[in-house]
């Protein structure tokens, strides 16, 4: 089964086309790595797949359902994107994780459980009551990851998760991702120019270059 199918997609920005995808399918329950240089269009593609932007042209389906302006907000609840550099809410670490859970309509008791669990996955339990803005770069990225994983999305989209952190943090983040991929049968899309990481996660590579996707290894 495919998580996404894309057909004759064009994404425009300020009147010019920045990404063209004639035909593409992304399998469900597997890790796919988007490989390519900076500026090749990886982030643009991830924003499209996160249903944050609408294509100028073409057809996009998510788990077999065509994405339209009408159902975009609902379908978006099953998908979550980790930005290259995270935006953290001006509140506590636990509060950041709880935000998305509240948005998903989860009750207080269950929410507390999920927050603890997500912070445990990412090794942030001890920092739960810290203001998010007091975190280091690596901790911030882990918090963003905890916030996303707490939602247990069907599709996880990761935009260069380790590009802006130091070596020690990179190792921790990779370990978190590896564990998570092993334990959950989620669909993961990872944009990176770090081929070894893609390999460790057992990803099927997909190349993006010059604003078009080139399928296959």
């Amino acid at each position: 089964m495919n998580a996404y199918t894309l057909h004759d997609i064009r994404i425009g920005h300020d009147g010019r086309t920045v990404l063209t995808i004639p035909e593409l399918a992304i399998p469900a329950g597997a890790v796919t790595a988007l490989l390519g240089e900076n500026g090749a269009g990886k982030s643009t593609l991830l924003h499209l797949l996160a249903l944050l932007t609408a294509p100028a042209h073409g057809r996009l389906t998510l788990f077999g359902e065509a994405v339209t302006a009408r159902n975009r907000a609902r379908l978006r609840k099953g998908v979550s994107l980790l930005l290259q550099t995270p935006y953290l809410f001006n509140r506590s670490v636990a509060g950041n994780v709880a935000w998305g859970l509240k948005a998903h309509g989860m009750g207080r008791a269950e929410r507390g459980e999920r927050v603890r669990e997500a912070l445990a996955w990412t090794g942030l339990e001890k920092l739960a009551e810290r203001p998010a803005h007091a975190l280091s770069g690596g901790e911030a990225q882990r918090l963003a990851l905890a916030r996303l994983l707490a939602l247990r999305p069907r599709v996880v989209l990761l935009d260069e998760p380790t590009a802006h952190v130091d070596a020690a943090s990179r190792a921790r983040i990779e370990a978190i991702l590896e564990n998570w991929v092993r334990e959950h049968q989620a669909t993961v899309l990872l944009a990176t120019h770090d081929a070894p990481l893609a390999e460790r996660l057992g990803a099927r590579p997909l190349r993006v270059a010059d604003g078009t996707t080139l399928s296959g290894p």
């Binding site: 924003h47 996160a50 944050l52 907000a73 978006r76 609840k77 998908v79 979550s80 994107l81 930005l83 550099t85 995270p86 935006y87 809410f89 001006n90 935000w99 998305g100 509240k102 948005a103 998903h104 916030r147 996303l148 939602l151």
Partner: peptide
């Protein structure tokens, strides 16, 4: 990035608006 973050975490218009004010 605030807007993208709110939306990708499943926030509807009212909740996004509230987050923006806060």
């Amino acid at each position: 990035r605030l807007l993208a973050t709110c939306r990708t975490l499943g926030g509807g218009p009212a909740r996004v608006g509230l987050a923006v004010v806060l």
